[in-house]
Design a protein around this nucleic acid. Structure first.
Lengths: 211, 211
DNA sequence: GTCTATATGGAGATAGAC
DNA sequence: GTCTATCTCCATATAGAC
């Protein structure tokens, strides 16, 4: 076991607090609208202190995204360990996890195609490595689900993959929640249904048994 | 017919050029990353001149969004006039139109939930009026499609409506296009399929007739 | 209305004491 | 490493001549 000095531990706790704030603000307002003043205020430290932990705003956001991918990876492992599950069950499970993460205010929106963040992310090896791992893992499940006919085999794997990423931060969830008319769990199930079976969703409802 | 002086016509043409540039830049980079310097440069006028036509950046974006809603409204009218079409056909038609608009670089992304743009839009009567009209029109089609069983009647109308708005600027289209591997029309059809029938899409392909 | 030039404010990043 | 204070850049918005 690696020995960590007390000071080092305090440091790590602080860095974790910073990353939590960043994830929260990224989820709430997105990268462009997130300011380092807000981050510092939420953590309760001076803005300048942030630069002792991270080189720039982009590096800060990248570290937060790495943390998110780590959480996703952990969820993939957890789902992988489910004994009787089929690939399609695991895929639905990861989308459900993503939607819950979004409901918890911890799912950053996808970076815009030409954002400064985008460039920083593709240049970040830790981020790209994890993204590849997650993509590989999901890709394998997608291929398997297509083989068993649970996913449309006519769609390119990458299209399914990108769609899953996009649905993870689907704005529909937030807008529907803002109406205040539906329970969180209901919304999650509806979004899962539209994601996998579409708005048409001709899936037969189980009819109640007559007494 | 209303008589317009030459000067007034020139003015309107210029304003249209400005709005075209704004729509283009909103689609390309989003509201936050769009700068008035870029707008002015693309139109070929001085930045200060923009303020003779529009009061602020927000007003500029709002006018562009109004234009987009007008284009959407026109498309709704066109689809309404199709004689034999069912409601579901019309709904798919409007999503197809939206995706083509996005491919043409003329579909702004949805404003973030807490953006300054958002506030400006809800405060803009012209925008809200048109949004209500479009929503009403689509809502009627949705209800009709649910009645005929072409859309899942178990989903709230507003959820379907928000989902259609969200899919209009689905980032999946841009990402897939960036791979350069697929024809635009193919991508549009795939996205329509996943939108209405989901990633599972158990719809049977028409098998070729044997000779 | 269009231009050049400028004012104003906000946000990322840095300096230097402690 | 943390702080206060400051620098610098850039984007919105305005002033004023033509």
């Amino acid at each position: 076991m690696v020995k960590l000095s007390f000071k080092t531990q305090v440091l790590q706790v602080r860095e974790q607090a910073i990353l939590d704030a960043v994830v929260h603000l990224l989820a709430e307002k997105g990268y462009e609208l997130m300011t380092l003043d807000e981050v510092a205020a939420e953590v309760g430290i001076a803005k300048a202190s942030l630069y002792k932990h991270f080189d720039s705003k982009e590096a800060l956001a990248a570290a937060a995204m790495v943390q998110l991918l780590d959480a996703c990876h952990a969820e993939l492992q957890r789902l992988q360990a489910q004994p009787g599950a089929r690939a399609i069950d695991r895929l639905q499970g990861v989308v459900r996890w993503a939607l819950h993460t979004q409901l918890a205010g911890k799912m950053p929106t996808l970076p815009a195609q030409n954002s400064a963040l985008r460039s920083a992310l593709v240049a970040d090896r830790r981020y790209m490595t994890r993204l590849d791992e997650v993509s590989e893992h999901l890709g394998a499940w997608i291929v398997e689900a297509q083989r068993t006919g649970d996913l449309d085999p006519g769609l390119p794997v990458e299209l399914v993959l990108f769609t899953l990423f996009a649905r993870a931060c689907d704005p529909v969830l937030g807008v529907m929640r803002a109406t205040g008319r539906y329970a969180d769990e209901t919304l999650v199930e509806w979004l899962l249904r539209t994601c996998f079976h579409g708005l048409a969703a001709t899936v037969a409802e189980p009819s109640p048994v007559q007494p």
